[in-house]
Amino acid sequence: MPFKYLPVFILLLLMFTGCTQLKPASVKPAESILPITDSVNLPDVIKTLLTKSDAQYFNDNFAGSLATLERAVRINPRHAEVWSRMAQVHLKLGNEEQAIQHAKRSNSVIKNNIQLKAFNNKIISSNFLNKSQEMSN
């Protein structure tokens, strides 16, 4: 009887799909760059470099984007926006550890920018989430 095992098969299928639905969705790296959150306090030179870095990012030139952000850091390392972007590019490149570290660095120089801090914390915590998932798997 070909349909003899049909109920078992359906049961297994339901269990399988049910299990996959139970598994939490993995946290994907940011697909786009967070727009500048505090352009008022950024000098023109930093804004120019951020704009250039963004263009490189959207052209998939992530190493170039990082190099441009490093130029900005050399000019003034006290701009949280720049460190945060470095974190985002590292996340895109799959360098999660550096992404976390740069997000922390951004937080260490941040001044009253709740939006940016929340974004940095998301990078830090989502990576911790990924790691805990890997460990539990």
């Binding site: 190493a63 990082l66 190099a67 490093e70 850091v73 470095m86 550096q98 570290q101 740069h102 922390k104 660095r105 260490s108």
Partner: peptide, 12 residues
């Protein structure tokens, strides 16, 4: 042509 970059690395 680019061969290698030594990016800024930091660790808290």
């Amino acid at each position: 042509l680019p061969l290698k970059r030594y990016p800024l690395k930091s660790e808290k």
